[in-house]
């Protein structure tokens, strides 16, 4: 089965998830093709040429300077027609979520999104916010499309080699690009670098109200930890956005991550599952957070956290 890996870059910098997808493809099957899209991508294409690949397709056109769903899907559709891969793999990034379903639909196919594992012909993805797994099989004729979840394969397992760079210029017209991309910005400079914290205490929906936050803040104080939160807490304005952990916030890997009242939606897990020791406190024994936890307590956080503070004080 021939594979085409669609990598992701912005302004000449890689999205590192591209290499997880590359590593996965190399483990799946041969031959593996890789594509890099944009303008001024020669250096990036040369870098890809240092991996064990059949070819690196440098997809370039002035209309691809900035990402648009229209430009990317039209260009990739033409590349797919040229290369005829049986499987097209993407990293499951926000950008891929924006264009890959459109691309697959234009070829009358369905993308299997956010895949966490592959066994033979079966791709595994999570349902119900990670509470249930599903084995999914493609039906009908290739090409098949799948995007891979962050961290599901390891970028350091790519195999080096050498591959030719093949330039590819798709046919694109300005009127085909309907969305006009403007400035990319951050709301506020980050005052907090959670990445440097040794211990993080993170709070989620289980806290119920902003007034209850001191319960968890006390735990952070006792441990000398930084406070963080899952998305809903920051959306509610209970904690500043800069303390959000997850795909739309920061990615952290401290010595210890204590998740309090966090169920563990995929978007949160990708931001913290690399932590060395993960502790989860949640009343729902089925919460997905327990799947990545080293230690956990099933119970009411309003009872468990004060008890935990007391026990920590005894040993510190």
């Amino acid at each position: 089965m021939s594979i085409l890996v669609v990598t992701e870059q912005r302004g000449g910098a890689w999205n590192r998830m591209s290499f997880e997808t590359l590593a996965a493809a190399q483990q799946f099957e041969k031959p593996v093709h890789a594509a890099v899209i944009g303008t001024g991508i020669e250096t990036l294409a040369q870098e890809l040429a240092g991996y064990q690949l059949e070819a690196v397709h440098a997809v370039s056109h002035p209309l691809l300077e900035h990402y648009t769903a229209d430009g990317y899907s039209l260009a990739l559709r033409q590349l797919i027609e040229k290369v005829s891969p049986e499987l097209v793999l993407f990293p499951h990034t926000y950008q891929v979520r924006d264009f890959a379903p459109k691309l697959a639909t234009s070829l009358n196919r369905v993308l299997v999104s956010d895949v966490v594992a592959r066994h033979g012909d079966v791709f595994v993805r999570q349902l119900f916010q990670g509470k249930i797994n599903a084995d999914i099989r493609f039906t009908g004729e290739p090409p098949f499309f799948a995007s891979l979840q962050a961290g599901a394969w390891r970028a350091d397992q790519t195999v080096a080699g050498s591959a030719p760079v093949v330039p590819f210029t798709p046919e694109l017209k300005p009127e085909q690009i309907r969305v006009k991309p403007l400035d990319i910005f951050r709301e506020a400079e980050r005052a907090v670098d959670l990445g440097a914290a040794e211990i993080i205490v993170s709070v989620g929906r289980g806290i119920k109200e902003a007034d209850n936050l001191p319960v968890v803040q006390k735990l952070a104080e006792v441990l000398g930890a930084e406070m963080a939160a899952s998305r809903p807490i920051c959306d509610n304005g209970w904690m500043p956005m800069e303390r959000q952990v997850g795909s739309s916030g920061q990615t952290v890997a401290p010595k210890m991550y204590i998740a309090v009242g966090i169920s563990g939606a995929i978007q949160h897990l990708v931001g913290m599952k690399g932590s060395r020791t993960i502790v989860a406190i949640n009343r729902d024994p089925e919460a997905p957070i327990f799947e990545v936890a080293d230690y956990g307590i099933v119970g009411d956080l309003f009872e468990v956290v004060p008890a935990l503070i007391e026990e920590i004080r005894k040993v510190k």
Binding site: K131, I136, R137, G296, I297, G299
Partner: peptide, 24 residues
């Protein structure tokens, strides 16, 4: 062409988790 869900199941834990319950 489409995709077919062949089977659904509870995910196994990816780690050896030690979970405690009972009195807090």
């Amino acid at each position: 062409t489409s995709i077919r869900i062949e089977r659904v199941y509870m995910p196994g834990s990816s780690k050896q988790s030690q979970i405690f319950d009972g009195p807090p």
